[in-house]
Write a protein that binds this DNA or RNA. Structure first.
Lengths: 341, 341
DNA sequence: ACCTACAACCCAATCGATTGGGTAAGCATC
DNA sequence: GATGCTTACCCAATCGATTGGGTTGTAGGT
């Protein structure tokens, strides 16, 4: 009757069974099946004895062993460009939460948006026998996705979409439109877009939403005013530099498809002696926690990152259950702040 | 001789063995042991045949099965306050890289610095049978750590240290001293500290390093000028507000133990009509990628976050190998920028 | 001719949980 | 009292890899 038997590493089903003088399989059924199979497998009295013993012996089933038998690991693999990208980090938090609620654990890996890494990381995940993948770094020319489909690997996309595959994303087109409406209504007529990476649907959709709406409002956007760039601060800075030097009448507003790029752009503007908000309006995207806290508060399209992550998990669960799923787009809202007010 | 036999899910050792007419155990020995055990287990010719077949059948061992037998999962569990904290995200990138190089995979979980969550997440990790833990959210009153030690769970700390346990951290004391030297030499004599959370060694050490050095330089720091706060932008803003209202002769310099708190403080200063760099110098800590890209570039203590993560993995490996390990502190450097120049 | 040594394998148990198929006892029904 | 139906279990195979202990066959030594 000691605290815990020091010799034994962990308690197994067999330990419990021996102690109660019943068969491991009975214990398994009692503990495993939520009282559906349990009744018919054991008497209520026995079931209670087993559950209690399990509780105070601190029994926890070995997922290795269970997985070996059932061919399911209850593991979801998550691939993101980089976790140090705040947007993906938050989506991942949503993913991890929702997965935990369904009894799954998650693996994350960074692909740095490099196709070779994507493939490598995918293979590692599959070698770990994940039940399915949540892919946050999909490129629009989805070679890898085709391959995964062919190999019958269950997966869904998150953050970025690729037509034809299930995904949980922000409605990026709408987001771009919101910004166009906002800047137009503020009287801006000469604008530029820091468009992000052309292989990412986020960048393409936000830009397209903005540009199309802008034109349908009667505005004009020259080619030069749409600058593709990296998503980080340095990328935004460079893009803004390029806009400032090449766009002849200087734009009075910038739309960056990403908050970090927007912050970089704000830096560039300041280096040119321009004041953000007065001389040039800036609007970002995602409404990361920084946006509202910057010295000059940044207008940004709020995207429900946590929910996007959670939704991705739901979708993957449906896929794993063999159901058919459609892409989901969650609605963004515009937060107007100092930088464009 | 088809591309791959469509019916079979995955290739197993037995498949390979059958195909070559030898025993699975022989195949295992050939594939497993790096030519030490391999010789003696099979002829070079056989070994080559096995290796080749494994290669083009795309064999990858099932870690579930292997782990079940060997009692090792080659999994490291990582617990952080939150991955959306850029600092931890980057350390995690280092951890994941280094772990992959050693043939380990990693699990991350967020504890939100909540003791109950820490315990829960630890339990989940252990239930997943990780080989060891890397703990990034250790609190100075390490109750959980004692418990883990008692349960003989191998672990190391990262980012934050707790005396008596192995850890990989930045030399935070030195970091604080660097800032003190810098501000003192710039002629500041009236300073305040945004000190972070008192349960985190990072906060305590950086603050102590700064304050002690400041006093040994002959400076004075009143109680009120050291404000404990959350690590995020909002926390920094609040702390700065408190300093601006309560410190009678307004300080000419602020040291925030974290870049995000520093950014929040910059926002507060601006709201008070003070110019960062001219009226009040601000220095942050960690030199996150934002620091150099902000509109007003932020001076910050650069800490080698990636290396800290990598080091933690090395330490845990040593612990797993039964070796004794000492805490490691990596050296920070000061990056002086606009905000304090 | 006999023994030893080594090379090159094979055998079978094992890890812990799951699961399809029993079986024995007890009761009711015809 | 034979049959059928529950109830409450037990049995044994199985998942895939690992590993301590064999077994065979051949070469070399004396």
């Amino acid at each position: 009757m000691e605290e815990s038997r020091a010799g034994d590493r962990t308690v197994t089903l067999k330990d419990l069974a021996n102690e109660l003088g019943i068969h491991p399989s009975t214990v398994s059924r009692i503990l495993h099946s939520g009282s559906e199979v349990a009744r018919g497998a054991a008497s209520l009295a026995t079931a209670e004895r087993v559950r209690e013993l399990a509780r105070n012996r601190g029994y926890s089933p070995d997922p290795q062993a269970a997985g070996l038998r059932t061919r399911r690991t209850r593991l979801m693999g998550v691939i993101v460009p980089r976790l140090s990208d705040l947007v993906l980090a938050i989506m991942y938090e949503g993913i991890d939460e929702a997965a935990a609620e369904l009894g799954y654990s998650t693996f994350v890996m960074n692909s740095r948006d490099d196709p070779e890494e994507q493939r490598r990381k995918t293979d590692i995940m599959l070698a770990r026998r994940v039940d399915g993948l949540i892919i946050g770094d999909a490129h629009l020319d989805g070679g890898l996705l085709q391959e995964l489909t062919a190999r019958k690997v269950p997966f869904v996309l998150v953050n970025r979409r690729v037509p034809g595959y299930p995904s949980a994303t922000c409605d990026d087109l709408l987001g771009g439109e919101l910004v166009a409406d906002h800047l137009w209504s503020k009287g801006h007529r000469n604008v530029a877009v820091i468009a992000g990476e052309p292989y990412a649907s986020t960048a393409v959709d936000r830009t397209a939403g903005f540009v199309d709406r802008w034109r349908s409002l009667g505005g004009k956007i020259p080619r030069k005013a749409v600058v593709w760039s990296r998503f980080d601060t340095a990328g935004g800075r460079e893009a803004a530099e390029s806009i400032l030097t090449h766009c002849k009448p200087r734009p009075t507003a910038l739309f960056a498809v990403n908050d970090f790029a927007a912050i970089g752009a704000m830096g560039a503007l300041r280096s040119h002696g321009l004041s953000v908000g007065d001389d040039v309006a800036v609007v970002g995207f995602n409404d990361t926690s920084l946006a509202a806290e910057l010295p000059i508060q940044l207008s940004s399209v709020h995207s429900p990152m946590l929910d996007i992550g959670r939704t991705a998990v739901q979708l993957l669960k449906h896929v794993l259950d063999g159901e058919h799923v459609e892409p989901v787009r969650l609605e963004p809202t515009l937060c107007v702040r100092e930088s464009s007010a």
